[in-house]
Amino acid sequence: MSEGSGERAGERASGGGGEHRSGFACLVGRPNAGKSTLTNALVGQKVAITSSRPQTTRHTVRGIVHRPDAQLVLVDTPGLHRPRTLLGQRLNDLVHETLAEVDVVALCVPADERIGPGDRFIAEALAAAPRSTKVALVTKTDKVRPERVAEQLLAVSALGEELLGGFADVVPASAATGEQVDVVADVLLSHLPPGPRLYPDGELTDEPEQVMIAELVREAALEGVREEMPHSLAVVVEEVARRENGLLEVHVWLYVERESQKGIIIGRGGSRLKDVGTRARRSIEALLGERCHLDLRVKVAKDWQRDPKQLQRLGF
């Protein structure tokens, strides 16, 4: 379907003084398909961390979109992939559990990459979740020419016809420029059932503060490091306390799997860790709306991705 189908869905979502709609929508796709960036664009504020590296998301972050006649709760999941570690399997299990519970599932396919085995793998997984309505979102449309977007829309539609009997809607969008983001919201809202408001007005996420802080630190730590680091880095907030002078003190541990990775995170003379702390602190202060002191420490937890006990200790 083209942009027009999204506009018609928007009319269904907002038209005519009908019943209030509410429910959950899940964005799925292979790693780095733009799910977290689109979640943030739909909510209008950062609720999910983003990175140019795959497999950044480790939690299902809920972002809430408020409309006078509807409320959409977005569930941003880790990218579905063929797992090579126990952590990877647990992340996949998390996605499958989410698919079984939501009202709408949106398959995100980037416009600047050809459809491949990973997209087929995920589309096949969607077929095993019959409860939800399936839509497709062609993301990152700002990165390619319009004719390439049109080709991708046709390719995605064909994939849906082959494996799912067709998508309810197929919509192109760019979270980076904001183009069609409102149409994406309209489309997702149009497929929600009638229902009451699920969260108070103004609430944008239900993630605990400490989880958000840990994610912001991990996002800062992932910038500019080699590719294996996203899979090997875990962040745990040890303590959030208030000093006598009122300043918030945040103590955070960054766990890696090898000594060499510890050196990468810390950098020469601690320069890189200091830079990570500065960037993370700014994001945390924006989140909390107050100044804070951020204390970062790095520790090796050997092969934690494959160790059930360490995974549990690190929150997986």
Rank of each mutant, 00 (worst) to 15 (best):
S2G: 11
E3P: 04
E3Q: 08
G4L: 12
G4I: 08
S5Y: 09
S5H: 13
R8L: 10
A13V: 09
G16R: 15
S22C: 08
P31K: 02
N40F: 07
L42M: 14
V43H: 06
G44F: 02
Q45P: 00
I49G: 01
S51C: 02
P54M: 12
Q55F: 10
T56G: 06
T57H: 01
T57E: 01
V65K: 08
L72V: 00
L74Y: 03
V75H: 00
T77I: 12
L80F: 04
H81V: 00
R84T: 11
Q89M: 08
L94Q: 15
V95R: 00
E97T: 15
E97I: 10
L99W: 01
V104R: 00
V105F: 02
L107K: 12
C108D: 10
A111Q: 01
D112K: 14
G116D: 12
P117L: 09
R120T: 05
A123D: 04
A128I: 03
A128E: 15
A129M: 06
P130S: 07
P130A: 03
T133W: 04
T133M: 07
T133F: 04
T133V: 15
K134D: 06
V135L: 05
L137Y: 04
V138F: 08
K143W: 00
R145G: 04
R148T: 07
V149M: 07
L153Q: 12
S157R: 15
L159E: 09
E162F: 02
E162H: 09
V170C: 10
V171E: 06
S174W: 03
T177L: 05
T177F: 03
G178H: 11
G178M: 06
V181S: 14
V181P: 12
V184G: 08
V187F: 02
V187A: 09
S190Y: 05
G195W: 09
G195I: 08
R197Q: 13
D201R: 15
E203H: 12
L204F: 12
E207Y: 02
V211P: 02
M212I: 11
I213P: 02
L216F: 11
A220D: 07
A220V: 09
A221Q: 09
V225G: 01
V225H: 07
P230F: 06
S232A: 15
E238I: 10
A241I: 06
A241F: 07
N245V: 14
N245I: 13
N245C: 12
V250Y: 03
H251K: 12
R258V: 12
R258D: 05
S260Q: 14
Q261E: 13
G263K: 09
S271D: 14
R272G: 03
K274A: 11
G277Y: 05
G277E: 03
G277A: 07
A280R: 00
G289M: 10
E290H: 10
R291G: 07
D295T: 02
R297M: 03
V298Q: 05
D303G: 12
D303T: 06
W304H: 09
K309V: 11
Q310G: 01
R313P: 00
L314C: 04
L314Q: 02
